[in-house]
Amino acid sequence: MFPELEEISYKVRELVLKMTTHAGSGHPGGSLSATDLLVALYFKKMNIPHLSSPERDRFILSKGHACPALYAVLALKEFFPEKELFTLRKLNSRLQGHPELITPGVEAPTGAEGHGLSIGNGIALAGKLDKLNYRVYVLLGDGELDEGQIWEAALTASHYKLDNLVAIVDRNSFQLDGATKDIKYLGDVGEKFKAFGWDVIEIDGHNFEQILDALDEAEEAKEMPTAIIAHTIKGKGVSFMENNDEFHGKVLTEEQLKKALEELEKQRRKIKEAK
């Protein structure tokens, strides 16, 4: 059990919903499915002495539309003030609608699906060249796997034996227009990565023990990259958002927000009591 991490996740979910409703637009559903993965990485796994240290671990949000979750995590890491989250998507904000390098802690500009794994390949190759021990984590959407570039990048990573690279697939089984099985059937994602020469670990992407074990296990892989297929729930944490593709790119109304925050608060209290 990781009550501290769960506590942070609830805080992140709360911030995601508040800031997107405040902004009036954004992508809450895919932000919530990715939240626990981000929290495990930033609050337990990744080593970031400071934002410009060459040996820091890197995280790339390839599914850039989930940036509200990333921004919330970066703010809770105190890379910038929490109140700045409420400038999201507003004129002159450092928090753009999709990730830009101007945000402290953002490692790559993303937003068009399909780019992050290749960028991760480049950073991982540089790590090998410089004999630095940092690790590179790339979060992919499952809908994003429709992009051909992902599979170009998957071949490159195994060809260059990038064992310092980890792709995490946020396997929430939804994309923009609906379920991935209806839009473009993906089949067995893990088997596909295996066929491309990757080590593959399947986990429940909302179970911290499994997430952290998988991230540790990925370090054991030698001369091959690791793909963690994280089975998640789009909209995780709010009953009426879960597995509801309506909230892919639509934010909560004030009324819905109130209800959602109450739900999150209830769950948070439960964790506290258990502690």
């Binding site: 780019h115 960028i119 390949n121 480049g122 950073i123 190759l125 490159t156």
Partner: peptide, 28 residues
């Protein structure tokens, strides 16, 4: 040879890999 990367016939991947290398301080 250690600083040359043949990416195969994958131009999109190659351009973003160059981006990653530059983010890590290289001049690709």
């Amino acid at each position: 040879p250690e600083r040359f990367f043949n990416i195969g016939i994958s131009e999109a991947d190659m351009v973003d890999i160059a981006a990653g290398l530059s983010l890590a301080g290289k001049i690709p």
